[in-house]
Design a protein around this nucleic acid. Structure first.
Lengths: 341, 341
DNA sequence: TCCTCGTCTGCAAACGCTTCCAGAATCATA
DNA sequence: TATGATTCTGGAAGCGTTTGCAGACGAGGA
């Protein structure tokens, strides 16, 4: 475990010169630099990041807080964030904060704020104003993916608008009997994505003068098996069956499609289905969807925080940035079959 | 940004006492401890982990290298690893090393070895003996999920045995015309999982005296859409269609099942399908599978490295640990339909 | 009363770097 | 040749902790 001093001795220079040679900061002659590099290599020397951080005050480390890992949306964000960070020479510290506020506080105190990270990226996590303040007071940039956050640059699609767009697509095709299979309003994660998508759904119906009642909305978890079960229930009852379903996520839409197939209900002839995400499985199911790109969202927030770190004075958008969400038409939506009765 | 000295002044004690009071090491009177805690809290003081690491030599940080994030198997490992680490008070540094050896070396040099982590967990990554040596020389425990690795405790199911088990299940049901849809031998990741599963398949057939040829094996990527396309090809040609398919992973099996459904081929009446993993989607597809629990695998390797760090002298299993993989029977496999001609 | 032992606290020396400062060497220019 | 600018190098201070050591104190045993 050799230190900088060993390298200095071997190369016949001072510690200061070794530091400069290896870090590339300040003047060092080409010859010296070469000797130092060789000495370092032959000793297997690697700089101690703790020591270096201690004096520079920078860790080259970014903390990422995410509520779920094993789901396409979140996994994609993670991939985008990781790629962008490593490309810029930063390490990523990952915290999977699921629910409990207790756990949350613990991570915040013991890990994030411990001067272990230079910046924080919060994915779908409503940081409290207090937490925000503490981070900013420590000079640590923050950015978030998800809804607007006081004093934090954030980024997401407009969930209300996306839901409206999806619903409008169904309306435009001529559907009037539309149901929304979405997330449980009571169990939602931060930023109220579930109620926003429900809201967009209702707005679109209202604007089109189409009535809806509480039966127009059914809750499910955002995974294929749960949505499949819900779909079986809805579609299994002919009196309840709508001509179109707006699913709050593609996993939900796919579950519904599988349920329909099992019940011999043809999509899109008997039932149109639209989702949100443009999940990798959407294409093979011919699923019409609203596209968003979580990987690019991840890259974007990384760009924000890193630029803030490296370019003093630069500031990211002061508030929430809305990303475009575009309709991708496939074969799961069509005009409703003319009513036979 | 207050330091330990400010806390010391405010509490009217020395820096040493503050350190002891806050870390819980050494003697501190209850009264003093209280005063120090309050002083620290009122100043919003948090210990600098760089400074602390510098003197203790420990970072409380574990590096995790993983080739893929957004896939069930890997995502589950990640969840298990993260949970286990945070529970023990460690942070997780995530590196998503996809393929290039160049990138690999870079991460190894610039990040992992930089004294930034106390230990390394390699998921499905063949660390070279040289890399292993360097880490061990630095006193950093390593553990891996995946095949055996010289000098590294590793953990995985026995891929050959699991494939044999799956194939034997089909044979036992009476199938003789069995096909293997597996990973591409030429494009496989580390540890040759693809060829191992193919090997187990062939071993089982040979042991049962069932002949196979090169048409008995078809390659696909391990995702549902790719397997679906391959399934359509295989099953679309009646002359090629086997009575049973052993899929190297549940995603593949599901793709095949979806292809069969689309072609009007009944599972299991016309075609039995078995996979490996017991993926969350397996149940709703009635998929017979071989279960493995990547989350628990993640927890296990964490237990190994952390125990090594905290209990000097303790050593994990010196070599590769084989995990049980059990058959879970569902409705996708059955006796072959009696031959009609 | 004296000694020992356990508890509590402070001093000061690390830990391994980076960087400010000053001085030496080199080079171009006047 | 003198002058200044530029390039190169070393000494030393300091980053914010932890911890070994030693001293102080009170309690309990001989």
């Amino acid at each position: 475990m050799s230190g900088i001093e060993d390298v200095a001795n071997l190369a016949g220079v001072s510690k200061a010169t070794v530091s400069r040679a290896l870090s590339g900061r300040g003047y060092v002659s080409a010859d010296t630099r070469m000797r130092v590099s060789q000495a370092a290599a032959s000793l297997g020397y690697v700089v101690s990041s703790s020591a270096s951080s201690l004096v520079t005050g920078r860790t080259n480390n970014v903390g990422v807080i995410i509520p779920v890992i094993n789901q396409w949306f979140f996994g994609s964000i993670l991939e985008g964030v990781e790629r962008a960070l490593v490309d810029r020479g930063y390490d990523m510290m990952l915290y999977n904060l699921t629910k409990s506020h207790e756990e949350r506080a613990r991570v915040f105190e013991y890990f994030l704020v411990r001067k272990r990270v230079d910046a924080v990226i919060a994915v779908t996590l409503e940081i409290t104003p207090d937490e925000t303040q503490r981070l900013l007071a420590l000079g640590k940039p923050i950015a978030g993916i998800g809804g607007a956050l006081e004093g934090v640059p954030t980024l997401s699609i407009d969930d209300v608008a996306a839901a409206r767009l999806a619903t409008e697509h169904l309306l435009l095709l001529g559907h009037r009997d539309i149901m929304h299979v979405g997330g449980d309003i009571d169990e939602q994660m931060d930023f109220h994505v579930h109620s926003k998508r429900l809201k967009g759904f209702m707005e679109a119906l209202t604007a089109a003068g189409v009535a809806y009642d509480q039966d127009s909305y059914v809750a499910t978890r955002f995974d294929i098996p749960s949505a499949y079960r819900v779909g079986k229930q809805i579609l299994g009852d002919p009196r309840r069956r709508p001509t179109a379903i707006f699913a709050a996520a593609d996993e939900v839409a796919i579950g519904v499609i599988l349920a329909a197939r099992e019940l011999g209900i043809s999509v899109p002839d008997d039932l149109s289905v639209i989702g949100i995400d443009n999940h990798p499985l959407a294409e093979m199911f011919g699923l019409t969807s609203i596209e968003q790109r979580p990987d690019l969202q991840g890259e974007q927030v990384v760009a924000w925080v890193i630029r803030q770190l490296e370019e003093p004075g630069w500031s990211p958008p002061a508030s929430h940035t809305v990303l475009p969400a575009t309709l991708i038409m496939r074969s799961s939506t069509a005009r409703p079959r003319p009513r036979s009765g």
